[in-house]
Design a protein around this nucleic acid. Structure first.
Lengths: 248, 248
DNA sequence: GAGTGGTCTAGACCACCCC
DNA sequence: GGGTGGTCTAGACCACTCT
């Protein structure tokens, strides 16, 4: 049985019940009690477990659903969000064709090698500098045109035995790969965009002239509990395509 | 008195009550019954007016608050969101210094002239090609450095008598100007980003070499009812700064 | 203390999915 | 028909703001 009134004597902060439920649910998710794609217990069941009303559980689930951590399906149940599902496979992809057609890109993995975390990456991923990481290079083709060159870094501790062949054999988005192979689920990401000129290497891979303006997209992706787990730098040749964003 | 059951005989769609309340509230906002910055009636008052429970009104207001159309203030009331208020003055500005310091830019209006809507702008703003518009040119300085060159187009019908002197005399963000001067409130915006090379004109205004890679930010801003009212093209010299975005 | 939004409850009923 | 989420209600009480 939980209580919002545990702060009777000199308690400075007030924590609503649904907030505590939210934390409990998140803990269960982190602990892997329910895996991505699976259903969590029904609202009435959770209400009984936590000793609160269904309305309170609902509010907690509502917020987790708003954060894309859970997915509600009327008549069926509430599910743990997953990158494996079709509708969520390219949730973080913001590059779209100017024609409006949504054609998903094809991945080409160019390399996957073990490396040591640079100071920059280490800070972003909260690792010590020099910690073992995997560095992935890949190219994305939109309708056959090479538009994006990605440099992706993940901790080698979290992704043991990652290799080019595994990546090439897998059929699906990178995040669904991380999820199904390592149980690593990306919840949200922060991106910082700048404009840069293509260097010789990028130019040759993207098949453009050196000096061509490219969109540089730096990303840090987070898993449960705001833990940073992926660092990424994408170079995008915005030819007939653009980075689409909605401001609320 | 409203009812969710008006669809007794062969009604194909179901509209929750709170959704209908939401529409009624939006209509009052469009009609100007409550102006930006003002308080709307209390929840109990609205519940009485619409003949529903407070909970239903709450849910409607919750959603409008999530869309940044209303702002709740505990103990005080619910207010119509406004760009004039400090915390919302740069709600749509995504350019931030890489140092983390949030220093707001200074506007320099270079020109404001009457023009005719190009086919591109006309389509974006749902005007007929050649319709009268105002074209604003301005430069934004971050800590004294000219980083952004904006070309902004609004309908001359919506913004009668807009002039450079007015813009220069006004002290605040452009959207708070539109709001207080013309009652035009921007609710949301869509942006499309690409990387381009600076042409001679942009280069001289931004004090960079011609050909320097710039971030091109195309924006369409919408007011109540998803009506497009502003078209904008920004060129940004991302020097020590970047376009920051959060992916949910 | 009065008024506002914010939380929590218990219960009724509806819409949707699947057996 | 039974289970799940979704809506709506009425009422109690809490937290916050202002006077």
């Amino acid at each position: 049985m939980l209580s919002a009134m545990t702060n009777v004597i000199a308690a400075p902060t007030f924590r609503p019940l649904y907030d505590q439920i939210k934390i409990l649910l998140t803990q269960s998710l982190v602990a892997g009690e329910w895996k991505p794609g699976e259903a969590i217990p029904s609202e009435v069941e959770l209400a009984a477990r936590f000793g609160v009303s269904q309305g309170t559980v609902r509010k907690a689930i509502d917020e987790l659903a708003a954060e894309n951590i859970l997915v509600r399906r009327q008549g069926k149940g509430t599910y743990v969000a997953s990158h494996v599902e079709d509708h969520a496979r390219f949730r973080f992809l913001r590059i779209h064709a100017d024609t409006g057609n949504t054609i998903y890109p094809k991945s080409e993995f160019l390399a996957c090698k073990r490396d040591k975390a640079s100071p920059l990456v280490a800070r972003a991923l909260e690792l010590r500098p020099g910690a073992p990481v995997h560095m992935i290079h890949r190219r994305l083709l939109f309708s056959g045109k090479p538009l994006v060159l990605d440099e992706i870094v993940v901790s080698a501790v979290l992704c043991k035995g990652l290799s080019s062949t595994q990546l090439n054999e897998y059929n699906g988005s990178l995040y669904s790969f991380f999820e199904s192979r390592y149980g690593l689920r990306m919840i949200r990401a922060e991106e910082r965009l700048t404009a840069v000129a293509a260097d010789d290497k990028a130019a040759s891979i993207l098949e453009v002239a050196p000096g061509t303006p490219l969109l540089a997209v730096n990303r840090i992706a987070f898993t449960y509990g705001d833990k940073p787990v992926e660092w990424r730098r994408g170079l995008c040749h915005t030819d007939g395509h653009s980075y689409v964003n909605e401001l609320g």
